[in-house]
Amino acid sequence: MNELNVIFNSLRGFSLYSLVDILVVSYIFYKGYSLIKETRAEQLLKGIILIFLLIPISDFFNLNMLLWILEKTITIGVIVIVIIFQPEIRKALEHIGRTSFVEKIIYEDEAVMHGVINEIVNAVEQLAEEKTGALIVIEQKTGLSDIINTGTKIDAEVSSALLQNIFVVNTPLHDGATIIRNDRIIAAGCFLPLTANDKLNKQLGTRHRAGIGVTEITDCLTIIVSEETGVISLAVNGRLLRNYDKEKLRTILVKIMKSRQNKKISFKERVKGWISKKDKIS
Results as ranks from 00 to 15, higher is better:
residue 118 N to P: 02
residue 153 K to F: 12
residue 54 L to W: 04
residue 103 E to V: 07
residue 134 A to I: 04
residue 115 G to F: 00
residue 118 N to T: 07
residue 175 D to C: 11
residue 177 A to D: 11
residue 68 W to Q: 14
residue 60 F to S: 05
residue 76 I to N: 11
residue 61 F to N: 01
residue 109 D to W: 00
residue 83 I to P: 01
residue 131 K to A: 08
residue 153 K to E: 14
residue 89 I to W: 04
residue 112 V to N: 08
residue 85 F to G: 00
residue 133 G to N: 05
residue 173 L to I: 02
residue 89 I to H: 07
residue 172 P to I: 06
residue 163 L to P: 10
residue 141 K to C: 07
residue 80 V to L: 15
residue 78 V to F: 12
residue 179 I to V: 02
residue 183 D to A: 11
residue 136 I to K: 06
residue 161 A to Q: 13
residue 77 G to H: 04
residue 169 V to G: 06
residue 166 I to L: 09
residue 155 D to C: 12
residue 134 A to C: 10
residue 76 I to V: 15
residue 86 Q to L: 11
residue 54 L to H: 03
residue 87 P to K: 02
residue 99 T to A: 08
residue 127 L to S: 01
residue 145 S to T: 13
residue 68 W to F: 13
residue 180 I to S: 09
residue 135 L to Y: 02
residue 173 L to S: 04
residue 173 L to C: 04
residue 169 V to D: 07
residue 135 L to R: 10
residue 178 T to G: 05
residue 100 S to Y: 06
residue 112 V to L: 10
residue 153 K to Y: 13
residue 127 L to M: 02
residue 59 D to V: 11
residue 164 Q to T: 02
residue 189 G to F: 01
residue 121 V to M: 05
residue 160 S to D: 07
residue 123 A to E: 02
residue 186 I to P: 03
residue 98 R to S: 10
residue 61 F to D: 02
